[in-house]
């Protein structure tokens, strides 16, 4: 099928052969579409809107326009950006799901490592929490309970192969108390919100999820945070120990994140523009505070750092999925 966009562009180019002035205009010369591959209101949507707000003064008339294109676990919006014209006017709010967990467990219509990575934006550390009415006061008690009554302890997730599921399985596996997929029962829900709610109601015994998705319940005391996955404690829940402190290494890849990416082969001018603009956003106090208020960690990293983190996380996740036989 001939690409009508291209056809139109060629025509336009022919028409304007005599006027080369248009080519010299600096990027961006029109508004930029930032595709969020999930529905409004979620962590990715919030990250996108925070970025749009933080860059609005600098971009002037050529604002970021946030467009929610959800579906298929983020694959619809992501594949659309992957195939978009790499002129820098279509960007993706990439998520852990679109670039790590989903590609680890199933075929995706793009290469998760072949993107114009502009940088990490924020990370969402995963915490495991239990209802205030459950008897487990610490992570050790929870693990002991799982060991004592196999298959009886349940945990919720946003579906098989999501970060909620994989994080819990990894944690149990690394605790070495038995077959990580059998000893505790996995109960999938339709999305992260219902999964957290199930833990609040006590319908399941625990949930491992990005802190920002549960901050309301943890702050109100309905949920008790038992452990923070990774190497650093969270300012909001200073009493919850990290997995590293508890002697469980390698959990730092089980983290939610939002990054900014463009289609492969994106215009180098535009890439340069964004890398330097993200450098400015990094020190924007209002942006930092906004991100923190939503329970996330401001984490603007360079493209190189982001790529090496993604690569490591994707490889490890793939390996874990393979070892555990999780394949969708």
């Amino acid at each position: 099928m001939p690409n009508p966009h291209k056809l139109a562009c060629v025509t336009l180019a022919v028409l304007s052969l005599g006027m080369a002035t248009a080519a010299s205009a600096a990027y961006p010369e029109k508004p930029i579409t930032l595709i969020v591959p999930f529905s409004p209101g979620g962590a990715s949507d919030q990250a996108a809107r925070a970025l749009a707000a933080a860059t609005s003064a600098r971009l002037g008339a050529n604002q970021i326009i946030v467009v929610n294109k959800d579906g298929a676990g983020g694959l619809i919006g992501s594949s659309e950006v992957y195939k978009a014209k790499p002129d820098g006017y279509t960007l993706l709010l990439a998520r852990v799901a679109t670039h790590t967990t989903v590609p680890a467990v199933r075929e995706v219509p793009y290469d998760p490592m072949n993107w114009a990575v502009l940088g990490m934006l924020e990370t969402n550390p995963v915490t495991c929490a239990t209802s205030k009415d459950k008897p487990y006061k610490t992570f050790k008690e929870l693990i002991a309970a799982i060991k004592a009554s196999p298959e009886k302890i349940t945990y919720s997730s946003a579906g098989p192969g999501t970060i909620l599921h994989l994080a819990a399985v990894m944690l149990i596996e690394k605790s070495k108390i038995g077959d990580p997929q059998k000893i505790a029962t996995h109960i999938p829900y339709k999305g992260g919100g219902p999964a957290a709610l199930a833990a609040v109601k006590g319908e399941v015994d625990f949930v491992c999820q990005s802190y920002n998705e549960m901050s309301a319940h943890i702050k109100s005391g309905a949920l008790r945070a038992l452990i923070v996955l990774g190497n650093e404690r969270l300012a909001d829940v200073p009493d919850a120990p990290t997995s590293k402190e508890l002697g469980i290494d390698g959990m730092e890849i089980a983290v939610g994140w939002s990054g900014l990416m463009g289609p492969p082969g994106m215009d180098p001018e535009a890439v340069k523009f964004w890398v330097s603009l993200l450098g400015e956003v990094k020190n924007n106090k209002a942006w930092q505070d906004g991100v923190k208020r939503l329970g996330s960690v401001p984490s603007i990293w360079s493209p190189a750092e982001t790529v090496s983190f993604m690569k490591n996380a994707l490889e490890k996740m793939k390996q874990i999925a393979k070892e555990l036989g999780i394949k969708l």
Binding site: H5, A8, C9, T11, L12, L15, T33, I65, V67
Partner: peptide, 13 residues
């Protein structure tokens, strides 16, 4: 309402 679809073909500029 700012929905993001083009108004007209690009050729018409």
């Amino acid at each position: 309402l700012g929905i993001t679809v083009p108004v007209m073909p690009h050729v018409l500029g």
